[in-house]
Simulated assay, not measured.
Amino acid sequence: MAEDFRSTEVGERYAQALFDLANENKRLDAVRADLRSLRAAWIDSADLRRLAISPVIPAEDKQKGLEAIADKAKFDPTTKKFLGLMAASGRASDLTGAIAAFEALYARHAGIVAAEVISARALDARQVSAIKAALKSALGRDPELTARVDPSILGGIKVKVGSKLFDASLKTRLDQMKFALRRA
């Protein structure tokens, strides 16, 4: 599901407009918090994904649905208007791209280094702090860490920082070994 959150061209345009408006109105942190909540809801709720993506649901219904979600979650008015505008424009399916692009704009603006850690099972606090310390020494500043569990990697971890990926997963190592055996 986290793979859904990749910046898109349309998402970047909408995110830039939202970022500029939120920055101008000094609502950046509130909008960012709203979009993070929406991202978590997107991952957890098949109904939300269906509402935004389904070509069968009219744009007007998508707009009402997204605005109702914003009201229920007590989102900032800027975020609510943004969601309504995306739906009314027929761009609700680009919501994940806009969220990813907004996060990138925010990180660049705030000087944040975002890192995603993917592991086969949930990491404990000691492991997370060790990964943070290693990334801080490699990057020269504190990273903002997001942890995700993906049992398909079997073991080890993957760490994404920007467009770079450090892959120390067991699945990748087994695939490499299988490839090497086939070549031999």
Rank of each mutant, 00 (worst) to 15 (best):
M1G: 12
M1F: 12
A2C: 00
A2Q: 01
D4Q: 09
S7A: 02
E9P: 05
E12F: 08
Y14C: 02
Q16K: 10
L18V: 10
L18G: 08
D20S: 15
L21S: 10
A22H: 06
E24I: 12
E24P: 14
E24F: 09
D29P: 05
D29A: 14
S37Q: 11
I43Y: 04
S45P: 03
D47E: 15
L48T: 05
R49M: 07
L51Q: 02
P55S: 03
I57G: 08
I57N: 09
E60G: 08
E60Y: 05
K62M: 08
K64V: 15
I69P: 03
K74E: 12
T78R: 06
T79H: 07
K80T: 15
L83N: 05
G84R: 13
R91N: 04
A98Q: 02
A100I: 04
A100R: 01
L105W: 03
A110S: 10
I112R: 09
I112L: 07
I112H: 11
V117N: 00
I118V: 15
I118N: 06
S129N: 12
I131H: 00
A134N: 11
A138E: 13
A138I: 11
R141M: 04
L145P: 00
R148G: 00
V149I: 13
L154M: 14
G156P: 12
K160H: 10
V161N: 03
G162V: 05
D167A: 13
D167Y: 12
A168G: 15
K171W: 01
T172F: 06
D175K: 09
A184D: 06
